[in-house]
Nucleic acid binder design. Structure first.
Lengths: 213, 213
DNA sequence: TAAAGTTAATGAAAATTTTCATAAAATGAA
DNA sequence: TTCATTTTATGAAAATTTTCATTAACTTTA
């Protein structure tokens, strides 16, 4: 199998979203054009992305919605549920704990960690907050592979090192510090203010110069 | 001026982060190699990105930290503060309201909107929650250009339409629905579960196939 | 001062990603 | 059936992005 470009992976998830939504609305078939249109992409690109994984479209007809959905879910590893640990139950962390979107999409946050004695032992939803001293013990016992990191940037590196040693393979990092590990570990850095900052670039420069954006 | 690739803009913000941090640690000069190293990039790429905006490095020495910082801040439109509206004060929305990172980076969330009568009139930090009926009035009176959207996906399109009509130019969208508008409007879609989903692709496929990732 | 080592700038080359063009298969209408 | 239309699959072309190679400027060391 050919190497899959990272940009393709990001798009596949979006395709899956759209396909699921269209399935709900009763669409039995979807064309590359429809999928592309919903995301402002070129239909050729959609076909090429899908073709990495085999040919499951029918010429003249498009893609069978359900089959496409199942295939995409399998490709993305989303045909099963994932157990997730959350580290850092501050403002953002506790909002993420309560965020229904994760469960809806197959991710069960089954444990949470914090350093603050006031928080340890408390319950948020179905999850009891544990001491960060227990990270290694619980992660390994529960065999958790994914962690969400929402702690201050100063602690990010140290804690992520510990997580990976304890058995975590992928981290979704909300701490505003760029984390990076090499294969086979995966980190996705999500820096909320960074997003706002990329908006201002365009607001500031649009129209003024001939930046064709 | 040449067209600036979108990937470059995303990197510039990260460079700025690093440069500011290094300045705090007392570094008066930074080389492209150092900047690149911190983000796992090629130093040539850093130089090329910076060169879009003129030449402010010194051969044999690197870039003057403070000057580079100031220039990047100016390029990104971050040499001034931005006033931001937040729409949707649910779990995520109220966490974002309390999130200190925005203010730290120059963004002042000065108003918040919700539909729920229980929430309207309440105060979170310095911000009073207003009825969504007042979106147009307040956005326009306060001349706000940026909005953060943290509402259910069903309402996303309708509300974003209203925001843009009211004068908003850029939206940071946390609703799990891909929003898209054409120039001069800008939307940044931030779908939290989508990030987890892109992690699972790699966790699922790494090692199994020769996807060189 | 001279020589060796760094490092930015820049145009060229390579790699990657996207778009295009064509062929083949399926559909629907006449 | 036949023909026009739609749409996927796929290899080629184009565009974009990244990496490389060279040159020139500056720094450090002897």
């Amino acid at each position: 199998m050919k190497r899959i470009p990272e940009v393709t992976v990001e798009r596949l998830i979006k395709y899956l979203r759209f396909v699921e939504e269209m399935e709900k609305e009763g669409m039995r078939n979807l064309t590359a054009k429809q999928i592309a249109g919903s995301l402002g992409l070129n239909p050729h690109l959609v076909r090429k992305d899908l073709a990495y994984f085999g040919q499951f479209g029918k010429r003249g007809k498009g893609y069978q919605t359900e089959k496409l959905k199942e295939t995409l879910r399998k490709i993305m590893g989303l045909d099963k549920r994932w157990r997730v640990a959350l580290v850092g139950v501050g403002n953002l962390g506790s909002a993420l704990l309560r965020y229904p979107g994760f469960k809806e999409r197959g991710f069960d946050v089954i444990c949470a960690f914090d350093t603050s004695p006031q928080k340890i032992g408390k319950q948020i939803g179905a999850v009891k907050i544990e001491s960060m001293d227990k990270i290694e013990e619980i992660i390994s016992k529960e065999n958790i592979k994914i962690a969400i990191l929402s702690i201050p940037k100063e602690a990010a590196e140290e804690v992520s090192d510990r997580l990976l040693k304890a058995g975590i393979m992928g981290i979704l990092n909300f701490a505003p510090r760029h984390l990076q590990y090499s294969y086979p570990f995966r980190v996705l850095n999500v820096d909320l203010s960074l997003y706002l900052e990329s908006l201002t670039f365009y607001l500031e420069n649009d129209g003024k110069k001939n930046l064709s954006m």
